[in-house]
Design a protein around this nucleic acid. Structure first.
Length: 857
RNA sequence: GCCGAAGUGGCGGAAUUGGCAGACGCGCUGGACUCAAAAUCCAGUUUGGCUUACCCCAAGUGGGGGUUCGACUCCCCCCUUCGGCACCA
C-alpha cells in the first residue's frame, strides 16, 4: 500500500478537530510553556511559504512539550485591522469586515492544512468588538496614567490629582512650580489641561508625516515602508494622539539586558532608543536676558564651539532674527518645513542662514554667531547645538561652507590630514583642560559647568514619543469624547466597546479627519452626565495597538469581565518562546514591551517583560536564491506543495533546509528528498498489501541498534529544545537508514521512533501508530527516555598523529588508558615508519581522541 | 559612513570547553531490478598528484598573518555578502 498522504492528512486533521486534541490543558499543578507565533495579518494573497517555517518550528516544540508532560499554551489569531483591507474597500466599496472575514477563512484553512496544533478555541481577532473592547480599555488605562519619575513607574492619574491638591508640584521633579492652592483655584478646564501634560496618552500639535493618497499620518518608522511602495509623504503640523514611550526609554534599555533575544534585534532596539550621555549647557544671548540651551555629548570641546546652530523650528528663531535677515529666515523655515525628515537626511549638503544674533560661549566668554540650519533636528536634544567644527564632521562641513572659524581642541596625531578629528587625544586650546584626554576633560568640564551653574549633566534619547492616531476607518475607535467646554472625557468601562459605526463609503473624508467624521450620528453626541454637547474622537488607533497585548488575551479569550484573569496571567506568563519575523524587531516588539510595562506598573500583569525568549525565522528565498516575488516568478505556494507532497513533507522540508534563523533558498528537489524519506518510513512499517511489515518482530534490539536508538532519542530531544530541527531530522534519517539494513526489526524501538517522528510529521505518525494497533492519538504519549550509558559506543577510533598530522588510526575500546594508547600507537606500522631514527620530543595523548607524537629531526 | 550577523564540496548544510573537516539531504557517476521507463535498492562522489594497489602524498573551511603539539573553532589585519540605522550633536 502506498503512502497516501492526502487521505491520511485529511483524516487526522478531522480527528484532531473532532476530538479537540490540542485543547489547552490548564493544570496549574503542572509545569507550563507558553509558545507563541506572531499572529499574521490575513492578507488577500493567502499564506506564503514563510509563514509555515516559524509555525512549524513552534509546533514541533509544542508537540514535544505535550509529550514531556507540560501544560502547553499554543494559540493563533488574526491581526486584522489595518490599511490593506481599507484600501481594498476604498476601491470596491466592499466593507473591510467582509474582506477580513474572507481572508481569515483562507488563512485558517491553510494553517489547518499544515497540521499545526493550535488550540482553536482560543483564536483571537483584533477586529472583534469583544477583543477591541479591551484594546480600548487598555488605552484608557494608559490615558489615565502618568509616569512618576520618583519611582520610575506609571501610576494612576488620580494619584497625581490627589497630590496636586495636597502639596502642588513641590515634590514632582521637572514639573512647573505650582502650589496646592494654585491648583485648587484652577478652573476645570485648566486642571484638565494641566493634567494632560502628564498623561501617558496625550494630544499634541506636532509636525507629522501626512500621506495624502492614504489619507492618514504615518509614524516616522512607518514612512519608509510606504514611500518604498511609491507613496509620497509630507510634513505638516497636526493635532495627534501620542504615547509617552520616551518615559520608559531607560527601562526598555535596562530590561533588555535580561532577554534571550537575537543579538541583532537587541542591538536594533538599543540603537532605536539611542541613549547618549552628555550635558545641557546654557549660552547667554548677547543683548537679551535669556540663554539658549544646547545638548552636547562632547562638553570637553566647548572651547572649540565657534558658532551655534538652531533647528529652523526652534522657538527663539523669530525673536532672534535681526530685521535684515527676517525675509531669508522666513524663506528658509518654509523650505525646511516642506522637506520630510527623510529628505532632509538624504540631502547632506549643508544649508543655513545667519540670524544676525550672537550668544556668548560660557567657556571662552567670546561672542559666537547663531545660525539656523536643517541639519539640526528639532526633535532631538534641545533643538540647538554648539558647533565644534574641529571635532565634528557635520560642523566642519558647515563651517567650511560658510567660512566660520575652526579651532581644534583635541590634538590629532602627527601625520593626521583629515578634517574633523573625532578620536581621543590630548586637549589643546582649552585653557584648564589642556593635556587631558577626552574622558578626563569631560569629567573636569562637567564639574566646572555644574559649579558655575551654567549647565547640567544630561542623558538624551533618540527615541521619540509614539504617534498613536491614524485618520482611518478600519481601526479601533479611540474611546474619548471632546466636550464643548474644550475638555476631553474618557468613556466609562461599561460603555466599552465603542463600536465602529457601519459606513457605506470608505474614501478619505477630504479633510485631515478620518472617514469616521462623515458618520455624523455617531460623531455628534450629548454627554449624559453633564448634558454638554460632545464630539467623538474620529481618529482610530494604529495597527500596532491590537498586537501590543494579544498574547494576554489568549490566556483568557472569552472573559468578558476582565482582559484576562489574574490567576491565568500568573500561571502562563511570561511567554517562553516567541517566534516571528525580524521585520518586527523595533516596532511591534518595542510597542508591546512598552504597553506591557505600563500594565506591569499598574499591577495588571505580573512580569516586567512579555517575551523572554525570541527567535526570528529566516526568510525563505526563491529557488534562484533571490527574494521571492511575483515579478521574478519564483514564488512557491504552500497549497501546491501540500497537494503534491503533503503537509508532512512541507513541514519536514522547511525544517530540514537549515538553521531556523538563517535565510535559505527553496529547493523543489529538497522537498522530494524528504518526501522520499517519509516514503521510506512508511515502507518500514507498511507493506504493499497494507499489512504491518513482517520484519518487525518482538525481539530485543541488537546492541549496536540499541545504542543508535538511545543516541537518536537523545539527539532528537536535545535538538528540539535548541530549535535545531535540521540536525534532529538528519539523525532520524540515519536511524531509518540503519533500521532498513536489519533483517529483524525490534518493534519496541520502532514504535518509539514513531513517537519522536510525530512532532515533525504528525499525520503519518498518527496513521502508522494507529495501524500498529493503538487506539488513541499519540498527542499525549510520553516522550521516550534514553539511557545515557546506552548511548556510549563500546569502542572508538583513535587518531595517531605525527607532528599534528594524521598518519594512522586504530579502533580501541572506549576509555583506553593513555599509556596503553601510546603503546598501541608505537606499535602501529605507519607510525613506526615515521618514527624511524627520529627523536620523540613530546607526546600528547587525549583519551578517546588521539595520540600526537612530536618528533625532532 | 556607522552598528550587527555571516562566509565550509557542484548545491542546502554538519562538526565548539581547540583534537579524524564535509554528518544528513540534494545533484552527479556507475551498477542491480525492468522489454523499457518511473519508483526502489547497492556502490562511489573535496581538489590535485602518484601508483600494481581506495595504498600513499600534498593542498583545503573568504584572503593574509599570529598563538598552539594541533585552529572551521582563539587573536590581529583585510575582502565579500546580507540585515539595520543614517546629519541624533
Amino acid at each position: 500500500m502506498k503512502y497516501q498522504f492526502l487521505d491520511i492528512e485529511k483524516k487526522w486533521q478531522e480527528y484532531w478537530d473532532r476530538n479537540k486534541s490540542f485543547e489547552t490543558i490548564e493544570d496549574f499543578s503542572k509545569p507550563k510553556v507558553f509558545i507563541l507565533d506572531m499572529y499574521p495579518y490575513p492578507s488577500g494573497a493567502g499564506l506564503h511559504v514563510g509563514h509555515p517555517e516559524g509555525y512549524t518550528a513552534t509546533d514541533i516544540l509544542c508537540r514535544y512539550k505535550r509529550m514531556k508532560g507540560y501544560s502547553v499554551l499554543h494559540p493563533m489569531g488574526w491581526d486584522a485591522f489595518g490599511l490593506p483591507a481599507e484600501r481594498y474597500a476604498m476601491q470596491t466599496n466592499i466593507h473591510p469586515r467582509i474582506t477580513t472575514e474572507n481572508n481569515i477563512a483562507t488563512f485558517r484553512r491553510q494553517i489547518k492544512m499544515l497540521g499545526l496544533s493550535y488550540d482553536w478555541d482560543r483564536e483571537v481577532n483584533t477586529t472583534d468588538p469583544g477583543y477591541y473592547k479591551w484594546t480600548q480599555w487598555i488605552f484608557l488605562k494608559v490615558y489615565n496614567a502618568w509616569f512618576d519619575p520618583r519611582v520610575r513607574k506609571a501610576r494612576p492619574i488620580d494619584a497625581l490629582e490627589t497630590e496636586l491638591a495636597g502639596k502642588g508640584t513641590a515634590e514632582i521633579p521637572g514639573a512647573e512650580s505650582m502650589s496646592a492652592s494654585d491648583w485648587k483655584r484652577k478652573s476645570k478646564r485648566e486642571q484638565h489641561d494641566f493634567l494632560a501634560q502628564f498623561r501617558l496618552a496625550y494630544v499634541a500639535e506636532i509636525p507629522v508625516n501626512w500621506c495624502e493618497a492614504l489619507g492618514t499620518v504615518l509614524a516616522n518608522e512607518e514612512v519608509a515602508e510606504w514611500t518604498e511602495k511609491g507613496y509620497s509623504v509630507e510634513r505638516r503640523p497636526m493635532r495627534q494622539w501620542m504615547m509617552r514611550i520616551t518615559a520608559y526609554a531607560e527601562r526598555l534599555l535596562e530590561d533588555s539586558l535580561a532577554l534571550d533575544w537575537p543579538v541583532s534585534t537587541l542591538e536594533q532596539q538599543r540603537n532605536w532608543i539611542g541613549r547618549s550621555e552628555g550635558a545641557e549647557i546654557d549660552f547667554p544671548i548677547h543683548g537679551r536676558p535669556e540663554a539658549i540651551r544646547v545638548f552636547t555629548t562632547r562638553p570637553d570641546t566647548i572651547f572649540g564651539a565657534t558658532y551655534m546652530v538652531l533647528a529652523p523650528e526652534h522657538p527663539l528663531v523669530d525673536a532672534l532674527a535681526s530685521p535684515a535677515v527676517k525675509g531669508a529666515v522666513e524663506e528658509y523655515k518654509k523650505q525646511a518645513s516642506l522637506k520630510s525628515e527623510l529628505e532632509r537626511g538624504i540631502d547632506k549638503d549643508k544649508t543655513g542662514v545667519f540670524l544676525g544674533a550672537y550668544v556668548i560661549n560660557p567657556a571662552t566668554r567670546k561672542e559666537i554667531p547663531v545660525w539656523i540650519a536643517d541639519y539640526v533636528l528639532t526633535g532631538y536634544g534641545t533643538g540647538a547645538i554648539m558647533a565644534v567644527p574641529g571635532q565634528d564632521e557635520r560642523d566642519w562641513e558647515f563651517a567650511e561652507k560658510f567660512n566660520l572659524p575652526i579651532v581644534r581642541t583635541v590634538q590629532p596625531p602627527p601625520g593626521f590630514n583629515g578634517k574633523a578629528y573625532l578620536e581621543d587625544g590630548p586637549a589643546i586650546n582649552s585653557d584648564f583642560l589642556n593635556g587631558l584626554d577626552i574622558a578626563e576633560a569631560k569629567e573636569k568640564i562637567l564639574s566646572w559647568i555644574e559649579k558655575e551653574g551654567i549647565g547640567i549633566r544630561k542623558v538624551n534619547f533618540k527615541l521619540r514619543d509614539w504617534l498613536f492616531s491614524r485618520q482611518r476607518y478600519w481601526g479601533e475607535p479611540i474611546p474619548i469624547l471632546h466636550l464643548e467646554d474644550g475638555t476631553m472625557k474618557p468613556l466609562k468601562e461599561e460603555e466599552l466597546p465603542l463600536l465602529l459605526p457601519d459606513l457605506k463609503k470608505f474614501q478619505p473624508s477630504g479633510t485631515t479627519e478620518s472617514p469616521l467624521a462623515l458618520a455624523t450620528e455617531w460623531v455628534q453626541v450629548v454627554d449624559k452626565e453633564t448634558g454638554l454637547k460632545a464630539r467623538r474622537e474620529t481618529n482610530t488607533m494604529p495597527q500596532w495597538a491590537g498586537s501590543c497585548w494579544y498574547y494576554l488575551r489568549y490566556l483568557d479569550p472569552r472573559n468578558d469581565r476582565e482582559f484576562c484573569s489574574r490567576e491565568r496571567e500568573k500561571y502562563w506568563m511570561p511567554i517562553d518562546l516567541y517566534v516571528g519575523g525580524s521585520e518586527h524587531a523595533v516596532l511591534h516588539l518595542m510597542y508591546a514591551r512598552f504597553w506591557h510595562k505600563v500594565l506591569f506598573d499598574l499591577e495588571l500583569v505580573s512580569t516586567r517583560e512579555p517575551f523572554m525568549k525570541l527567535r526570528h525565522q529566516g526568510i525563505i528565498l526563491g529557488e534562484d536564491s533571490r527574494k521571492m516575488s511575483k515579478s521574478r516568478g519564483n514564488v512557491v505556494n504552500p497549497d501546491d506543495i501540500v497537494s503534491q507532497y503533503g503537509a508532512d513533507s512541507m513541514r519536514l522540508f522547511e525544517m530540514f533546509m537549515g538553521p531556523l534563523e538563517e535565510a535559505k533558498p527553496w529547493s523543489s528537489k529538497g522537498v522530494e528528498g524528504v518526501f522520499r524519506f517519509l516514503n521510506r518510513v512508511w515502507r518500514l512499517f507498511i507493506t504493499e498489501e497494507g499489512t504491518i511489515d513482517s520484519h518487525i518482530r518482538d525481539i530485543p534490539a541488537p546492541a549496536d541498534f540499541e545504542r543508535l536508538y538511545h543516541q537518536t532519542v537523545k539527539k532528537v530531544g536535545e535538538d528540539i529544545e535548541l530549535l535545531r530541527f535540521n540536525t534532529a531530522i538528519s539523525q532520524m534519517m540515519i536511524f531509518v537508514n540503519e533500521t532498513m539494513k536489519l533483517e529483524q526489526r525490534p518493534r519496541k524501538e520502532l514504535e518509539r521512533f514513531i513517537i519522536f517522528l510525530a512532532p515533525f510529521a504528525p499525520h503519518i505518525a498518527e496513521e502508522i501508530w494507529e495501524r500498529m494497533g493503538h487506539t488513541r492519538s499519540l498527542t499525549h504519549e510520553p516522550w521516550p527516555v534514553y539511557d545515557e550509558v546506552k548511548t556510549v559506543e563500546a569502542s572508538v577510533e583513535v587518531v595517531f598523529q605525527i607532528n599534528g598530522k594524521v598518519r594512522s588510526k586504530a579502533q580501541v575500546p572506549m576509555d583506553t588508558e593513555e599509556k596503553k594508547l601510546e603503546k598501541i600507537a608505537h606499535a602501529d606500522g605507519h607510525i613506526k615508519r615515521y618514527m624511524d631514527g627520529k627523536k620523540v620530543i613530546r607526546t600528547i595523548i587525549v583519551r578517546n581522541k588521539l595520540v600526537n607524537i612530536v618528533l625532532g629531526n
